[in-house]
């Protein structure tokens, strides 16, 4: 289980995260929504320590980190090895083939035998529909294909939690659908996932829990059904604006 208690992150004058208290249950998909600059990405990036909040507690299973104290390299690595991250801009390693992108960390971080890592990687690439691209370099792939490789790369580490930071924001709608299908399947297989997205249709379809964030504060956390009945005026305004954007 993954849990934040009283987490604060401050950039200069701005409260990027304001007293955030939230639990991300296992084998469930939590979707984080909110306007741009609301702290969604900061929240997600705090969970794998790409950002360091000023204070608050972070529980990851039996491990508890206090953000106000220095965090040891050992704990940072331990935590990152158990969480996978998919970025908006894919961030594939351009100098490695698609297959090597996926086997890189299993071989060099988990010290898996190359033959085992390779067969796992091939299975994962088949799972995301890219078995035939294994020997290509990432730049030869479309954005949607690159993002699916990035998902396979993260899954190859067998993380307990998968984080997705606006995974389809850089894709046009047709390519987006291919990536969303993969995400939907992962959610249906009861992986533990946290997804930041602007796509409300997708959020509705995939979320077990919705978090609505604004100016670093959690204004709603709970089941998606209630969220989409627009329980507050602010959520109503937000959803109307998002719908307008879709139409």
């Amino acid at each position: 289980m993954l849990k934040l208690e009283h987490v604060n992150k401050i950039y200069g004058e701005r409260h990027a995260l304001n007293d955030v208290n939230i639990t991300f249950p296992e084998h469930k998909t939590t979707v984080i929504v909110g306007p741009s600059g609301s702290g969604k990405s900061t929240l997600l990036r705090s969970l794998n320590l790409l950002e360091r909040p000023e204070n608050g507690l972070y529980h990851f299973d039996d491990l508890t980190l206090d953000f106000s104290q220095p965090i040891s390299e050992k704990n940072v690595l331990q935590l990152r090895r158990q969480t996978g991250m998919v970025f908006q801009s894919f961030n594939l390693f351009p100098h490695l083939t698609v297959l090597k992108n996926v086997t890189e960390a299993p071989i060099h971080v988990l010290k898996q035998a190359p033959a085992i890592a390779t067969s796992t990687a091939k299975a994962l690439l088949a799972q995301v529909g890219l078995a035939d691209k294994a020997d290509q370099f990432p730049t030869a792939l479309s954005g949607g294909q690159q993002q699916r490789v990035a998902i396979a790369r993260a899954l190859a580490m067998k993380p307990k939690y998968m984080f997705f930071d606006e995974p389809t924001s850089a894709l046009d709608p047709e390519l987006e659908a291919d990536v969303l299908r993969v995400l939907l399947k992962l959610a249906q297989e009861h992986n533990s996932m946290i997804v930041v997205t602007h796509n409300m249709e997708f959020a509705k379809g995939v979320a077990d829990q919705i978090i609505f964030l604004e100016e670093g504060e959690i204004l709603y956390s709970g089941d998606p059904q209630t969220f989409f009945t627009e329980p507050t005026e602010r959520i109503h305004d937000f959803l109307s604006a998002m719908n307008f954007m879709i139409k």
Binding site: R81, A105, A154
Partner: peptide, 9 residues
């Protein structure tokens, strides 16, 4: 960031 999140030093 991508490499660090994969657990590399």
């Amino acid at each position: 960031e991508a490499a660090l999140t994969l657990g590399m030093t």
